[in-house]
Design a protein around this nucleic acid. Structure first.
Length: 238
DNA sequence: AAGAGGCTCAACCGCCGCTCC
DNA sequence: CGGAGCGGCGGTTGAGCCTCT
């Protein structure tokens, strides 16, 4: 048997929050913070369980929440990250400032999933991934792997930023983002790297960018590394 | 105009992992 | 070491709103 739900205690209110409850919660957190969610409702004088308070705060009342519809860029990001991370909504949310995991989850199930489904034509050869479907229909790109999609997105950002700085960050036909070379050296050649990545290079002194071809086996390797990198990056977030 | 069905999204539920004792 | 407490996460629900017939 699992633990009894925290709201089963008598007298604890459930359901939609009133404006008054919101105000109480906001002012309490502004004054005292939310060190202990379980103790918070009692201290604040709310007839709610701590879990409910935390959810209300993180999903709705937090001052940095961005309201309004998701932009196409945000939806693109969600699709790409979902390909990489799966249903790890909190990890995806960490990449979208001002958006909550709940919101992203809702958008995925209501808008994006449906769109990806309707975009798939039975006449055409079936793209392998949801990203491919989406990219085919919305950008006119040739089918992209999840990894290529991410690379493409990153390169796009780099192109934008380089346009302002006058630098050219693109290095090959893939438009692969040239992240600081030392970053790749340190990351790709770190201890425990899969053999193909190590053997494909003569040494860590020079990176051969042609190595990152559209070859499917290579895609898998890159997918692997991006997962690792994304994970490492996300774990650093607050 | 009204009823049915679909859609949206805030909120709940139950599980998991971490921390502390 | 193991159990309790707690926060956090992902899946699911359902009330309210919208659209269609």
């Amino acid at each position: 048997m699992g633990r009894a739900p925290c709201c089963e205690k008598m007298g604890l209110k459930k359901g939609p929050w009133s404006a008054e409850e919101d105000q109480i919660l906001i002012s309490h957190i502004q004054k005292y913070g939310h060190g202990n969610w379980r103790a918070l409702p009692k201290q604040a004088g709310l007839a709610r369980c701590g879990k409910s308070c935390r959810l209300r705060w993180t999903n709705y009342l937090r001052p940095d929440i961005k309201r309004g519809n998701f932009t196409k860029e945000e939806e693109d990001t969600i699709i790409t990250l979902h390909e990489l991370l799966g249903n790890r909504w909190s990890a995806i949310a960490a990449r979208l400032p001002g958006r909550t995991d709940n919101e992203i989850k809702n958008v995925w199930h209501t808008h994006i999933k449906k769109r990806l489904k309707t975009n798939q034509s039975p006449q055409e050869s079936k793209p392998k991934t949801q990203t491919e479907i989406y990219m085919n229909q919305n950008r006119g790109f040739s089918p992209l792997s999840p990894t290529q999609s991410l690379i493409s997105d990153l390169s796009g950002s780099a192109a934008e930023s380089s346009a302002s700085t006058g630098e050219d960050n693109r290095t090959d036909d893939l438009g692969f983002l040239e992240i600081d070379e030392s970053f790749w050296k340190e990351t790709l050649f770190m201890e425990g790297s899969p053999a193909p990545l190590e053997s494909a290079h003569s040494g860590p002194s020079e990176l051969d960018w042609s190595f990152f071809s559209a070859d499917s086996a290579m895609e898998d390797n890159m997918g692997f590394w991006f997962r690792i990198l994304m994970q490492a990056d996300l774990e650093e977030l607050p």
